[in-house]
Design a protein around this nucleic acid. Structure first.
Length: 274
DNA sequence: AGTAAACTCCGGAAGC
DNA sequence: TGCTTCCGGAGTTTAC
């Protein structure tokens, strides 16, 4: 559920809350969600100082002292936030790190466990799942590079969702962007003309930036790091609106499968490929 | 070789 | 009330 705009808001909150923080005791670390280094998290993290918090696509990267990097992927239901040390431990909290001298903790919680945390200082990267791919961040991709990627003869939605090439597009914003551009999700990217590609590139940037500004989309149970709701779900034109009238032409929106994901389209505004 | 679809992980929500 | 089904981010596997 958390896509690029939601992750960007999480990163902005962490940047403030982790500014100059030093990790204390690791109070809890569920083995199954920790990957990369096989050594105990306590040994790897204690006394490390937070240098920088950033994001590539949906992947969060926390650079620590001693060349240690902590990558966090939120998957479907992950939450990463600094909370007061005394707060009750929410169910499915898998990692809990004290922040030295701050009466606060960095906590990672993930109900469905599709997310995870990777520790990497270059010395041992052999435990658990591989770090999910993150190509060039979609908001950092210029039009020339975008045109190059759009030459692939793949279904446009599957291509946009593939994090290896362009990182950051998820199901919600993909449907929103394709609806706004009037492009059918099953159309081959390589059949888009010069103008289509330009409009698509602009639209992706416009929608993602607007969603970041709005604090993301709160659908299902998503909340920001400070438990606030996003507001972008009010601007959704397609996602979650199957069976309801198209906001542009009134036609009933349809649900189909594209790139293996549930997808909502307007059959009139987004004409099917032959 | 490159693309696409099916399967896997998991647990809450929705449906029966 | 309690069971079954659905759903998805991303890796892996299988089939074109």
């Amino acid at each position: 559920m958390p896509e690029l705009p939601e992750v960007e808001n999480v990163v902005r909150a962490l940047r403030q809350d982790l500014q100059g923080a030093r990790f204390g005791r690791v109070l809890r670390s569920r083995r199954q969600i920790m990957h990369g280094d096989r050594r105990p998290p306590q040994a790897l993290l204690r006394n490390k100082v937070v240098r920088e918090v950033s994001r590539v696509g949906k992947r969060i990267e926390i650079r620590l002292s001693g060349a240690m990097r902590m990558y966090v992927h939120l998957g479907m239901t992950g939450q990463l936030a600094v909370v007061p040390a005394g707060r009750d431990l929410a169910p499915h909290t898998h990692l809990c790190i004290d922040l030295a001298g701050r009466a606060a903790q960095l906590r990672f919680r993930d109900v469905r466990r599709f997310g995870g945390i990777w520790l990497d200082d270059g010395r041992d990267g052999r435990r658990g799942k591989p770090l999910p791919a993150a190509g060039e961040d979609i908001l950092a991709v210029g039009l020339p590079r975008f045109r190059q990627v759009m030459k692939h003869p793949r279904q446009i939605k599957a291509l946009l969702l593939d994090q290896h090439l362009l990182a950051g597009m998820g199901n919600i914003y993909c449907d929103e962007v394709l609806f706004r551009c009037g492009i059918h999700p099953l159309r081959k990217a390589s059949t888009l003309d010069h103008d289509d590609v330009k409009r698509l590139h602009q639209c992706i940037r416009r929608v993602l930036r607007a969603a970041i500004r709005a604090g993301g989309s709160s659908v299902r149970s998503y909340r920001g790091s400070r438990d606030e709701r996003g507001g972008y779900q009010r601007n959704h034109q397609a996602y979650g609106r199957q069976g309801r009238p198209c906001r542009r032409c009134g036609t009933r929106l349809l649900r189909l499968l594209a790139g293996g994901r549930g997808t909502v389209i307007c059959p009139r505004c987004q004409r099917a490929p032959k």
